Amino acid sequence: MDAQKRIKQLMEERGWTDYRLAKEANLSHSTITNVFKRNNAPTLPTLEVICRAFGITLAQFFAEGGEAVEITDEQRELFAKWSTLTEKQKALLLEFISTLQ
């Protein structure tokens, strides 16, 4: 999935500009414009904040065809705990998880 296209789609559905998304997500306008102008894929923490601004979960963001995504209680717990981690802790956790695969 192309994250930039999905963000644009969600913005268009809501009639939001880059500036509005930045304001709703409490991000700098340059962060949002860099996602589109420099073709920078947003980091996971940035994407989490953007999803919160849109009022959706990461699972809903990545759902194909707009279908509803059901998440388990375990997944919900993981998302809740993820959002309490520092950036360093998130990076370490992702590194650890990649070693399990």
Rank of each mutant, 00 (worst) to 15 (best):
Gln4Leu: 13
Lys5Gln: 13
Lys8His: 07
Leu10Ser: 01
Leu10Asp: 01
Leu10Tyr: 02
Glu12Lys: 09
Glu13Met: 13
Gly15Cys: 05
Gly15Phe: 01
Tyr19Leu: 14
Ala22Trp: 08
Ala22Lys: 10
Lys23Ser: 12
Glu24Arg: 07
Glu24Asn: 11
Leu27Val: 03
His29Lys: 15
His29Arg: 15
Val35Asn: 00
Phe36Gln: 01
Lys37Tyr: 11
Asn39Glu: 12
Leu44Glu: 10
Leu44Thr: 14
Leu44Arg: 08
Leu44Cys: 04
Glu48Val: 11
Val49Thr: 14
Val49Ser: 14
Cys51Asn: 04
Ala53Pro: 00
Gly55Glu: 07
Ile56Tyr: 00
Thr57Val: 07
Ala59Tyr: 09
Ala59Glu: 12
Gln60Arg: 07
Gln60Cys: 04
Phe61Pro: 00
Phe62Pro: 02
Glu64His: 11
Glu64Cys: 03
Glu64Thr: 13
Glu67Pro: 02
Glu70Pro: 00
Glu70Val: 13
Ile71Val: 15
Asp73Gly: 10
Asp73Cys: 05
Glu74Ile: 09
Glu74Phe: 06
Gln75Cys: 05
Arg76Gly: 03
Glu77Met: 05
Glu77Phe: 01
Leu78Asp: 12
Ala80His: 15
Ala80Val: 06
Trp82Met: 05
Ser83Pro: 02
Thr84Ala: 10
Thr84Asp: 13
Glu87Phe: 08
Glu87Gln: 14
Lys88Asn: 13
Ala91Tyr: 04
Ala91Val: 06
Leu92Gln: 14
Leu92Ile: 11
Leu94Met: 14
Phe96Gly: 09
Phe96Asp: 07
Ile97Leu: 15
Thr99Ile: 10
Thr99Ala: 09
Leu100Asn: 05
Gln101Ser: 15
Gln101Val: 13
Gln101Trp: 04
